[in-house]
Structure formats: structure tokens, C-alpha cells
């Protein structure tokens, strides 16, 4: 039982790592980034390419993935999302253009990775990192699990507190509520948006590297699976709420774990969509979300 709880918490941490950056970007600068899964995958892929040549340890691999993720995200923001937002006549029209832009963007890295790996799974077995298994009081935990737990929970809570308490965090929240008024209050939207994308991309890279260690290998399409789960996580908790991401991740991870443990498991894909559908009917703003103020 303790083992199952620990494993489910690790899964929740994985969801936090993946969804955190996405939620931040959506809740503040209003971009629902469909390319987040691609950034996640391609950062891990870049690290894999390097590890194939140089047997690096975990810190270096993670650093490479984070830098790649940040660079890709910034490039996307600068070249695609920012021009779309500048052009949009109204937020509603812009919203869809952003989604489509993200969809187009996501196809490009996936296609490169597929070509390069011939769609084979890839991992960091070329590196020097070894998974260690510890048994404490009958409970099995690995060093990768410990790192994921610390990173997921630490970054989740840290980011949430930062958004809540810092001045920059206030500026970001203001952007999420009313971009026009916040611009009048002297908030430099493009600059802040770029910084947010950078952070989100780095988080995607971190998630990509750690997940590849945890699962041992991923494929070019792995990001898409997580993207759909991240939608559920973000909306469950409430768009714009970072604590919501943590809560949503736990709910989804434990629900999926429960379904896998106590049923034959074939409906597990339906869990995320089912939860998403239910919450939208019962409480569209999510569990911790504030009432929608932006749209009609």
C-alpha cells in the first residue's frame, strides 16, 4: 500500500513537471501551447544525441535538455506566438490562431526526431548515470524517483509561492486577468511573455530528461500523450492556478493508479477525459480557479 502511494505520488510529480510550464503560459500570457509536448520530447532528444557521443552524467544531461527546451520555447514565442498576438483583432480570434500555430510548430520537431531515430525509442543508455534501487522498510525507491519527487513537488510549490508573493508574479497574474489594463500600469507584456516562455521551455526540458530516465526510453510521440493529460490536469485544478496544477496532478495520478489497480485497466485512457469532462460540467473554472472574468 505504501509502495502504491509512493508510486502514485511519483506519477503525480511527473504530471506536475510537465503541466507546470504549460499552465503558467496559458494562465498568464494566454497561450494554450500545443507545442509543449514537442518541446518536451525534442529537449530529451537533443540530450540523447549528445549522450550518444559523450557519456555524460545526469546533471549535464538535464542541463542540456533544459537549455534546449528554453531555446526552442523562446524561438517559438519570438517567431510565431508574439506575431500572432500582435496581429489578433480580438482575443477570441487570436486564441484559435495560437492553437493552430502551436499545432503546426509541434509537427516540425516530431518529424525531425522520427527521421533521425527512424521512429525507434530512444534513451540515455549512452550516459554514465545508473539507476540505484533502495529498499527502505520493504518499500522500494530508486534514485530517479527521489529526484523526480523533489523536482516536481519543489518546483510546483516554489513556483506557486513565487507567483503569489513576488512583484513579477503579481505582474504575471495581472496579465492573466486583463492584458490591456496591465499594460497601462507599466507592465512590459512582450518581455514578460518571453521570460515566461523561457521558464516554461526549461521546465519542459527538465521534464523530458527526468522522464526519459524514469521510463528508460521514450519515443518521438511521447509528448503528445502527456499533452492530453496536461489539459486534464490544468483544467481540473483551474487555469491560472499553480497550486491547481499540483492538485490536478495528484487527482489524475491517483485516479489512474486506482483504475489500474482495481479494474482490468482497459479504461485508463478514459480517466483523464472523463475527469476533464466532469469538472467542466460541474465547475468549469476548476477546483481552485477563480470565476472566468475575461470572456463573455
Amino acid at each position: 500500500m505504501v509502495q502504491d502511494l509512493l508510486n502514485a505520488t511519483t506519477l503525480a510529480s511527473i504530471y506536475i513537471l510537465f503541466a507546470l510550464g504549460m499552465s503558467l503560459v496559458w494562465g498568464t500570457i494566454g497561450i494554450l501551447n500545443f507545442a509543449h509536448g514537442s518541446i518536451f520530447m525534442f529537449s530529451a532528444f537533443v540530450a540523447y544525441l549528445v549522450v550518444q557521443q559523450i557519456p555524460l552524467g545526469m546533471p549535464a544531461v538535464v542541463a542540456i535538455a533544459m537549455v534546449s527546451g528554453a531555446l526552442i520555447a523562446v524561438a517559438m514565442q519570438y517567431l510565431v506566438f508574439q506575431p500572432i498576438m500582435k496581429k489578433a483583432k480580438n482575443p477570441h480570434a487570436g486564441e484559435l490562431q495560437l492553437v493552430i500555430g502551436g499545432i503546426g510548430l509541434s509537427a516540425i520537431p516530431i518529424s525531425f526526431a522520427q527521421r533521425s531515430t527512424l521512429s525507434n525509442p530512444f534513451g540515455f543508455s549512452g550516459g554514465s548515470f545508473e539507476t540505484q534501487v533502495y529498499t527502505i522498510g520493504g518499500v522500494i525507491i530508486t534514485n530517479v524517483m527521489i529526484i523526480i519527487l523533489i523536482a516536481g513537488l519543489g518546483l510546483g510549490v516554489g513556483t506557486a509561492l513565487w507567483i503569489r508573493n513576488s512583484k513579477k508574479g503579481l505582474a504575471l497574474r495581472a496579465l492573466g486577468v486583463d492584458p490591456e489594463v496591465s499594460a497601462m500600469m507599466g507592465i512590459d507584456r512582450p518581455k514578460l511573455a518571453l521570460a515566461t516562455m523561457l521558464y516554461s521551455g526549461a521546465l519542459a526540458g527538465l521534464a523530458g530528461a527526468l522522464l526519459t530516465y524514469y521510463f528508460n526510453s521514450i519515443t518521438s510521440e511521447s509528448g503528445d500523450t502527456l499533452l492530453l493529460k496536461a489539459f486534464a490536469v490544468i483544467i481540473l485544478g483551474g487555469v491560472g492556478s499553480i497550486f491547481g496544477v499540483i492538485l490536478g496532478s495528484f487527482i489524475l495520478a491517483f485516479a489512474e493508479f486506482g483504475v489500474l489497480l482495481y479494474t482490468d485497466g482497459s479504461w485508463v485512457t478514459a480517466v483523464s477525459f472523463g475527469l476533464l469532462f466532469l469538472i467542466l460540467i460541474i465547475r468549469p473554472q476548476g477546483i481552485l480557479g477563480k470565476k472566468e472574468v475575461r470572456r463573455t
Binding site: Q97, L98, I100, G101, G104, S111
Partner: peptide, 19 residues
């Protein structure tokens, strides 16, 4: 083999340039 890349690029261009 670059079909998907061209596809993605076309979609991005369309999203940015022709709302």
C-alpha cells in the same frame, strides 16, 4: 521524407500571416 516538416511550416505560416 520532409513532408511533415513542410506541412508544419505551412500551417505555422498560415497561422501567423493569414488569420
Amino acid at each position: 521524407e520532409w513532408e511533415e516538416v513542410v506541412y508544419g511550416t505551412l500551417v505555422v505560416f498560415a497561422a501567423v500571416l493569414i488569420p
